[in-house]
Design a binder for these strands. Sequence first.
RNA 1: AGGAGAGUCUCCUAGCAUAGUUAUGGAACUUCCCUUACGAGGAAGACUACGUCGGUUCAAAUCCGACCUCUCCUACCA
Length: 866
Amino acid sequence: MAQETTYPKRYKFKESQEKWIKYWKDEGIYKFDINAKGEIFSIDTPPPFVSGTLHLGHILNHSWIDFVARYNKMKGRNVYFPQGYDCHGLPVELAVEKKYGISQHQRDEFLEKCIEWVEQNINNMTKQYDDLGYSTDWDFTYRTMKDDYKFKIQWSLLYFYEKGWLYREKFPTHFCVNCETSVAKAEVGYYEEPGKLWYLKLPIVGREDEYITIATTRPEYMEACVGVFIHPNDERYYHLSAAEVEIPMTDRTVRIEMDRNVDMNFGTGIVYCCTYGDELDIKWKINYDLDEIQIFTEDGHMNENSIYQGMTILEAREQILKDLDERSLVEKIEDYEHRVVIHSERSSCRKPIEYLPVYQWFINVKDFTDEIIESGNIMNWYPEKHKQRLIDWCEGVDWNWVISRQRVFGTPIPFWYCKECNEIIPPRVEDLPLDPVKTPPPVDKCPKCKSKNLLGEKDVCDCWIDSSITPLAIAKWLEDDDFFEKTYMKAKVHRPQGYEIIRTWLFYTLFRCKKLTGKAPFYETMINGMVAGPDSRKMSKSFGNIVSPDEVMPEFGADAIRQWAAMGSLGDDYPFEYTWIELQTKQPVSEDKIKEEMEKLPEDKFNKKYRRRFEQLIGASRFLTKIWNAYRFLGLNLNKFEISDINIDKNLLSVIDNYFYSEFNKNLELITKYFDEYNWHEAFTIVRPFFWNEICDNYIEAIKYKFYLEEQETREWALKNALNLFYKMLTIFAIIMPFISEEIYSNMYKKFKNLKSIHLERWPTPYENISEELAEKGKFGIDIIKILRNYKSKHQIPLNQEITRVIILSDKNKHEIINDLKEDIKNTIRIKNLEIYEKNQEDKIKDKPDSKEIIDELGIIFYFSL
RNA sequence: AGGAGAGUCUCCUAGCAUAGUUAUGGAACUUCCCUUACGAGGAAGACUACGUCGGUUCAAAUCCGACCUCUCCUACCA
C-alpha cells in the first residue's frame, strides 16, 4: 500500500506561506551561486524608498520582477536577483525629527537616529517581500546609506571631477531668510494672504512720456529686474515688440521679450522678470540667458546691489513704493488675495520663502544625451512604446544635473572648497568614503590662492546620485573584479521599473554606468504602469480609494495577489478593483452613497455597515481552489497505488491522453512566447482557461472512470499520464503562484523528483512525438462527449445519472474512431448500452428510440433513450 | 502652461504601422441542471463597448484635425 497522505479539503494559504518562506530560507532555495551553470542574468531591481511599508504599486512591480526571476531561472539562466533599499531622503529626516524630537543641527545624533529608523523600516519591508513570495537572495542586499555603497558613489564623483564633468556654481534655491537655510520644495507651503497688487509704470526708452505698466505683488524686486515679458498673441502690445524700458531706481534698461508662458489675464498682461522672483523667473533666466542681480542677503536684508542696502525686505518695499510714487510711477493699487510661499512643513517658522542663489554642485549631462539615447536604443524595451519617453527627455534636456541637496541624511559630497577663491579640493581615493565636514582636507592650504580657509562641503547628494549606480553596486564594482566581470560586463542585465522614473532613474543610470565602465548597463527593460483605484484615478487619500497590501494579503494570500498582478498589462496603468457592499443586503452600493455615508457615520459604524469586495481577488482565489481540488482528486487516487515514478511511455498513451498532450504542446508554445515578452496578462489568460476548462473539465472527467476499473495497469497508466501533465502545468503555475505550487509539489511530486523544491525545476518541455493523428481522434471523442453532456444538461438529466441507451451513427470513416473510444464515451457520460453503427445501417437498428439529434459538423446522428 | 502615455461592454484585455465579413479572449452577471475531486462543476443566455466632434475614404477602433478626461514628468518627496 502506498503511503497515505491526507488531503485537506481547503487550501490553507496562511500556513502554507509561513511554512515555505521558512523552508526556502533554511534550504537556501534562492541562493545565487556565481559558478552555477547557465548564462548569468542579473536583475537590477528598483530599491524602494524606506517608507516602512510597500504599497500596491510595489506589489505590482515586484511581483512582475519575481516572475522575471523565476521564469528565467526555469529557462536555465543563472539568475542573480538581489534587492536593496534606498535609504536617504527628506522623509527620513522629517520622521526622525518628529519621532525623536531632535533637529538636524545635532548632526551626529541625528544621523544615528536616521539609520536606526531606516533599519526598523527595512525589517518590516523585508518581511513584506518575503510574504509576497519574493525569490530574491537576501545575502546580496544593499543599503544606499552604508559605507560600501557610499564609497562607490564618492569614487564615481571623484572620477567625474577628474574628467571635468563635475563643477560648482551658484544656483537659486528655496531659501528661508528667517531660518537662514535652504529648504526643500516639500518643506514649503502656500497660504492665502490679503495683499496688494501694485501697478507700476516703466518708461519706454526713446519715447517721451510713454510707459508700460506691470502688475506685481513684490515691488521691492524692481532693482533686480532684468527683463519684461508679454505674450506673443497679446494684441494690446503688438507695438511694443523689441522696445526697451527703463528700470526705475537703477540706470539700466531692459528689452521687452515675447513669451508664451505669460498669463495674459493677470494684471496688465505685462510681467517683469527679476532673476529668482519665482520658478518662472528662473526658467526665463535660463532660456533668455539673462543676467542675475542679487539684492537680498541670506538673513533677509537688502545687500550692496541695492540703494536700500541694510533695510529688511519689508522696509525696502515701503521705501521703494514711496520713491516710485514721488516720481509718479505708481499707476494704481488693488487689493489682492495673495498666495505666499512660506516655510511651513518642517518648522513652525511660517515666514515667506525667497529664492536665493547659493553654491550648488553640478554634473554635466547636457553634453552626453546622444550617448544616453544610444544606450537606450541598444536595449530591448517591454513594451517598446516607452522608449520614446527616454528619447524625448534626452532631446529636451537643456540644463545640467544639480546634484547637491542642502540636507544632512545623504551621501556626503566628498570635496572641500576654498572660501576665498572657490577652488575645489578633491579627496584622496584611499580616504573614501568620508564626510568632508568631519574629515580635514588632504592639503592644508588652497593650491590656487594659498588661503588656509578651506571648508568641507556640507551638502549631500541628490537621491538619484545614490540610485543611479545600482547595476554597479549589485555587481560589486570596485570590490570584486571577477564578480563584476561576470554579473555586469558579461551578463545580460535586466532593468524593471515604472514609466514615471524613466526620466530620472533610467536616464541617470544609463548615463553614469556607461561613463564609469564604458559599457551601457542594460540588455533589456520591462516597464510597469501605475496602480490606480477602481475609478482609474491614482490612489490617494483625498479620493478615498487607497488599498493597502496589509489589508488584502491576510484575506487572500500572496498567490491570489500575484494573480492580480499577472493580469495587469505591460506599460499601462492598472486599477485595483473593488466595489462597496452593504453587509446586510450584500448588495453593491454606489460610490456617491458611500461618500455620503463616510461623511455621515463615524468610522467604526461605517465599517460595520459597509465593506469592500475585491472581485479580482475573489476570481483568483477560485482558481487556487480549482487547482487544489484537481490536486486532491489525483492525490486521493494516488493513495491507492504504489507507483515509483510518473514517467510516461508513449506507447501506453490513450487516444484521450494523446489529444490533451498535443493541446498542452500548443498552449505551452504560446505561453512561452508571451512569457518571453513579459506579457503576463496574455500568458495567464491562456494558462487559466486551459487548465480549468480543458484539463479539469474535459481531461480529468474523461479519464476518471479508469480510476475505478478493476484492471491495475490501465488504472496506473491513466493516473501516471494525468500526474505527468498536471506536473507540467504546476511548473508553469510556480512562476505566478509559488506557494500553492510548492505545497502540491512537496505533497505529491517530491517523492518522484529529486528536487528540494519545485522552484529548482526547469521550464516544461513539450511532449515529443505526439501523434497528431491520434490527437485528432481524441478531439473527436471529446467533442462527442461534450455534445452528450450537453444533451443531458438540456434535458435536465443529472450528469451522474445513467442513460439507458445511446446509439451513435456516423460516416464510415468515423465509425472505427468512435468504436475505439467507446469505453471513454460510455463511461464518461454513464451510458448503460452504447451502440455504434455506420449511417447506412440505420435501417437495421431495432427499437429505435424516439429522441434523435443530428450533428452536422461532426457528421453524426444520435439516438437516446433514458 | 509645456512634454509624454492612455481612453474599447460591469471590470480587465486583443486588434490599431500594410483601414475591409458579424470587433478578440477572460472575469463578473442571469436562468436552468447537478452536487460522490470541487465554498466547485455543467449547459444555455443575454446584454453589449471602440472618449467627443469633424474630416479623408466605397469602407475608419484603425489614417488626419480639433476638443474632453485620466496618468506621469517638467532641477530639493521618492
